[in-house]
Lab assay of single mutants.
Amino acid sequence: DIIVVALYDYEAIHHEDLSFQKGDQMVVLEESGEWWKARSLATRKEGYIPSNYVARVDS
């Protein structure tokens, strides 16, 4: 799995977006363009995230 960590807070604009806080970790489910589908490890919610707001966690 690709794990990313939030670099900034993000408040969902559309209902399919995923809100998150700086430091939150998410599993990337699908990478396509600038918006990635991800699942929050904390809340288990899924939605689209702006890929420029996150960084990959080296395992």
Rank of each mutant, 00 (worst) to 15 (best):
S19Y: 04
Y8F: 12
F20G: 01
E16W: 15
D9P: 07
Y48N: 10
A55K: 13
D1F: 15
L41D: 04
Q21L: 12
A42I: 12
H15K: 14
I3P: 03
M26F: 15
G47F: 02
I3Q: 04
P50Q: 07
E31P: 09
W36D: 01
L18K: 00
K45N: 09
G47C: 02
V28A: 03
Q25D: 02
K37Y: 15
R44P: 05
E11L: 11
H14V: 05
M26V: 02
V27I: 13
Q25G: 04
D9W: 04
K37A: 05
P50R: 06
S51C: 11
D1T: 13
I13W: 08
S19A: 09
V28G: 00
Q25H: 15
A42K: 14
V54A: 03
K22M: 08
W35L: 08
S51Y: 10
A38L: 04
I2M: 12
R39H: 09
Y10R: 06
L41P: 06
F20E: 00
V54R: 00
V57T: 08
R44G: 15
L18G: 00
Q21R: 15
D9E: 05
V5L: 06
T43M: 03
S19K: 04
R39P: 01
I2V: 13
I49S: 00
W36V: 08
M26Y: 02
D9M: 04
S51R: 13
E11Q: 13
L7D: 01
S59R: 06
E30Q: 10
K22Q: 08
Y10H: 06
S19G: 09
A12R: 05
K45E: 13
L29H: 04
H15L: 14
L41E: 06
K45H: 09
L7V: 06
E34Y: 15
A55G: 07
Q25P: 05
N52P: 06
F20T: 00
K22I: 09
R44A: 14
V4N: 00
Y8L: 09
D24F: 02
V5T: 07
G47Q: 00
E46Y: 07
W35K: 13
I3N: 04
D17A: 12
M26A: 00
G33K: 04
V54M: 05
V27N: 04
G23Y: 05
L29T: 06
V57S: 08
S32R: 14
H15S: 14
D1M: 15
S32I: 13
I3Y: 09
T43K: 04
G33Y: 05
A6G: 07
M26K: 00
A42W: 06
Y8R: 14
Y48S: 05
R44K: 14
L29S: 05
W36Y: 14
A42F: 08
A38V: 15
D24A: 05
D1E: 14
Q21M: 11
S32F: 13
V4W: 14
E46I: 13
V27L: 14
A42Q: 11
S51D: 03
E30W: 10
E46R: 04
S51K: 15
W36M: 13
K45M: 11
S59A: 13
A12T: 04
D58P: 12
V5Y: 10
W35D: 03
V4L: 05
S19Q: 05
A55P: 01
Q25L: 15
F20Q: 00
A12Q: 05
V28E: 00
E34A: 13
G23P: 00
L29A: 04
G33M: 05
F20V: 03
D9Q: 04
N52F: 10
Y8Q: 11
L7S: 02
M26R: 01
V28L: 13
A6Q: 00
I49M: 02
D58A: 11
A55D: 07
D58T: 12
F20L: 03
T43G: 06
K22D: 01
G33T: 05
I2E: 06
A42S: 12
Q25I: 15
Q25E: 10
R56T: 07
V28P: 01
W35V: 08
I13N: 10
V27K: 08
L7E: 03
E31D: 15
H14C: 13
V5G: 01
G33S: 06
N52M: 10
V4C: 09
P50Y: 07
E46N: 04
E46D: 05
L7W: 03
E16S: 13
L29D: 03
K22P: 03
V57K: 08
K22W: 04
L18R: 02
T43N: 10
V57C: 11
P50W: 07
L41R: 05
K45A: 10
G47Y: 02
R56E: 06
D24Y: 02
D9H: 07
V28Y: 01
G33N: 06
V28N: 03
A55Y: 10
F20K: 00
Q21G: 07
V27M: 10
K37R: 14
Q25W: 15
I13L: 12
K22Y: 05
Y53G: 06
S19T: 08
R44M: 14
D24S: 05
Y8I: 07
S32M: 13
D1C: 15
I2D: 08
G33A: 06
D17M: 15
S40H: 15
